[in-house]
């Protein structure tokens, strides 16, 4: 578990167009120098937005990674919900869901069923 390095990779990617191009050209090579678990490598290269959220990636970093992959806002939110349903609650960090009534109830309250 190396959430810090997952986020560090994404932080550097988000602020550097050259790194974004390198990542898009060869995703495995782009993450090679980071201390990551196989689970984290798979999530970063797929990309698996739901798994990354489950791992605890800060949404302020994750939303730009999703945008890089041309994932629209509503789809981004849904992928995080799917990740929680598939993998369980966020493992660590402050971007866990708090005081949360569950994705279904919340979606209904927002009229996003």
């Amino acid at each position: 578990m190396s959430l810090y390095y997952v986020q560090k990779f994404l932080y550097e990617l988000n602020r550097d167009e050259g790194k974004q191009q390198a990542y898009m050209a060869d995703r495995d090579a782009a993450i090679a120098s980071f201390e990551l678990t196989n689970e984290e490598r798979a999530a970063l290269t797929a990309p698996d937005i739901g798994m990354l959220f489950h791992l605890g990636v800060n949404g302020q970093i994750l939303m730009h990674f999703a945008a890089l992959h041309q994932i629209e806002w509503a789809d981004y939110l849904q992928r995080m919900r799917d990740g929680i349903q598939a993998h369980g609650p966020v493992r660590e960090g402050v971007y866990a869901m708090t005081g949360y009534e569950g994705t279904d109830v919340h979606a209904k309250s927002l009229g996003q069923e």
Partner: peptide
């Protein structure tokens, strides 16, 4: 607010 999470909009 709960930005950039599934709770976004709450």
């Amino acid at each position: 607010h709960w930005p950039a999470t599934p709770d976004s909009g709450k």
